[in-house]
Structure formats: C-alpha cells, structure tokens
C-alpha cells in the first residue's frame, strides 16, 4: 500500500482538525478491516490516516441511560453481539454475531460497519474506472452483477449497501450522533445513507470532516424485533439478502411495523409496503408471506440477480415470524 502519515488522537475533538474538507487524501481508521483492504488494492490511497482507536470513554462503550441505549462508534462488533445492555434488540445482536468470523468481529466496529465502502468487485478493482472512482459508467449494470442491487430504480451505480447492522438499527428507530467542525448533529439512521453516483460521494451522508461518534436506540418498551439473512456459506460471508423487522404487539396484532431490507439496494431500504402488509394484523404465516410479497414488489433485478427477488420474500417472512416469537421451523 502507499505510505502515509499516521495520527492517533486521544479525543474526537483532537481528531477533527486532522480531517480534510474533501474526500480522498485523509481516511479514518477504526477497526481497519475495510480500510486496509482498500489501501492494499490501491483503491484508497490516503496521504494521512487518522486512527480513532486511541479514543476511549463513551466512544468505546455501550451505555443504557434513561430511555435509550447508546453505542459508541468504536464498540467492537463482538461486543455488540454479546452485549447484555442490548439483549432487548436481538435484531442487532444477532446481525452483529453473523458478521464475517470471530477475528473480524474482534476488530471491526459499529462506526466502521456503518461507514465502510461497498463491496462491488468493479469498485474494488483498482484498474476499473467505475463511476465511484471518477469514471463514466457503472460496469455492473451490464456486467457481472449477481451480488448487486435489485431495487435499481434510477441509480446510475448499482452497488448494495454493505452494512448488516444498518437495517436492524433503522428498524429499531436509531439515531446517529455526528460531530463536525460546526458541532454535534443528530441524524435519523436512515438519513445517514445515500446512493452514491460519483467519486465525491460516499455511501453515507457524513461530510469528510465529520466523525460518527455514537448510535442511540430508543429503549423504552423495546419493540419485538428480529433480523434474518441468507448467505452462501454459514460464516465469513456477506449476506445475499437481509431483512430486519420490528413491531409493537397490541393484543394480538402488530403496530408500528418497520421492515428494512439489506443488501438489495445502494442504501438500506425501508419497505413501507411490507410494513403496511403487517400493520394492524396478527403476524401469521399468511400475513408474513404477504409482507414478503409486498417487499419484493417493484424490484427491478439486473441480468444476474433475479434470484434475490425470491430471497427478499423469504427473509421478510422469516424475520417477521422470528420477531413474533416463532420457533424457526426452517431450522428443523
């Protein structure tokens, strides 16, 4: 990889002056599992790396206080998976425990999971001048696209958002705390993401000189929640399709239903249609199936990923049933 200058500030405040107003020359390092890969492939060639691993305190802690649980952006994935403070959010802990393998979960962080770059093989190949690297076309549109988006409406770049923690966090109504030169701002988690189309855009909406410092989940009467994903292998693999479902039980029916799809669009995708299919109804095999059908409606798969549409139906159905407390019948 190209050499760089390394900084390891002890506080977020000390990190901010080290950041640039533009992308490209400076990169933040949290767990390093995404950044080092990109540097080795020369996809990212920063002159300066600002490590956030020296920042302690709340940045590395999970804290339950009042009506919310706050997870520092520097908290490791393994600690999220095993957290007692997060026991009411199996959608999140379960998804965290499914990411890659133990070593990656010991290294990777919440902030890194949410802010990592996409896994498109054209983007990750230094020799391919794709849209996100200043090129003129998306090579996946008519190329090898079996792992790309099926909700492609209008997107010039058909990556899927890589974070497995984003869908459950959005379903749980989480907010992101972002610190920049102008102070702190709070962003609903679904607004943290965007579909990038050029070199000067990222998969998230943070400015180059901002740092994601924490994610806050409302914890007063937590909803029923679950995440379900399908992978080619059981471990050390990215999900093909993921769904996170959350709802509040009211007598026998589901209220405030949230359904969020992962790995099917350039951003985590909130499915209003699937939520509507369950709202005010008892979660049964039939209504969960209907939610899956609703979630898949409107998908526009590419040449190689039509199979994902069927998977969307399956993961939404299974996530809804799991959230409702069903024994996972598909596990025998």
């Amino acid at each position: 990889m190209k050499n760089f200058t390394y900084h390891r500030p002890a506080t977020v405040a000390a990190a901010l002056p080290l950041l640039d107003a533009e992308w490209g020359k400076t990169e933040l390092l949290a767990g390093g599992t995404d950044l080092l890969d990109r540097q080795k492939e020369y996809v990212s060639q920063p002159d300066k790396v600002v490590s956030l691993t020296g920042i302690g305190g709340a940045f590395k802690q999970i804290a339950a206080a009042g009506d919310a649980v706050t997870i520092g952006a520097g908290v490791k994935l393994a600690d999220i998976a095993e957290s007692k403070e997060l026991a009411a959010f199996p959608a999140l802990t379960g998804a965290a425990g499914e990411i890659a393998g133990p070593q990656i979960r010991n290294m990777g962080t919440l902030g890194g999971s949410l802010c990592q770059r996409n896994r498109c093989w054209y983007f990750r190949d230094e020799h391919v001048p794709c849209l996100l690297k200043g090129g003129k076309k998306c090579f996946a549109l008519d190329g090898e696209n079996e792992y790309h988006a099926v909700f492609t409406q209008g997107h010039p770049c058909v990556i899927v958002h890589p974070s497995t923690l984003a869908p459950p966090l959005i379903a749980l109504g989480a907010t992101a705390e972002v610190v920049g030169p102008k102070g702190t701002r709070t962003v609903p988690l679904e607004k943290l993401f965007q579909a990038p189309a050029k070199e000067t855009q990222r998969e998230h909406t943070l400015a180059p000189n901002e740092v994601l410092v924490a994610v806050k989940i409302p914890a007063k009467e937590p909803p029923r929640n679950a995440s379900y994903e399908v992978k080619q292998r059981e471990t050390s693999e990215w999900p093909l399709v993921q769904a996170a479902v959350a709802f509040r039980p009211f007598v026998k029916v589901a209220r405030d239903v949230r359904v969020v799809l992962g790995h099917v669009a350039p951003t985590p995708l909130v499915s209003e249609a699937a939520a509507k299919a369950l709202e005010g109804k008892e979660v049964t095999d039939a209504t969960a199936t209907a939610a899956g059908e609703a979630a898949a409606a409107g998908a526009k798969p590419l040449s190689g990923n039509g199979y994902k549409v069927a998977l969307v139906k399956t993961v939404v159905k299974r996530a809804a049933l799991l959230a409702a407390g069903a024994r996972p019948y598909w596990e025998g």
Partner: peptide
Amino acid sequence: QPNPAAPAHGP
C-alpha cells in the same frame, strides 16, 4: 501542525 495532542507519525 499546531496539534500536540495527535502528533504525526511517519511516513
């Protein structure tokens, strides 16, 4: 750089 809190290391 006037930032003694996070000195530069390298390249």
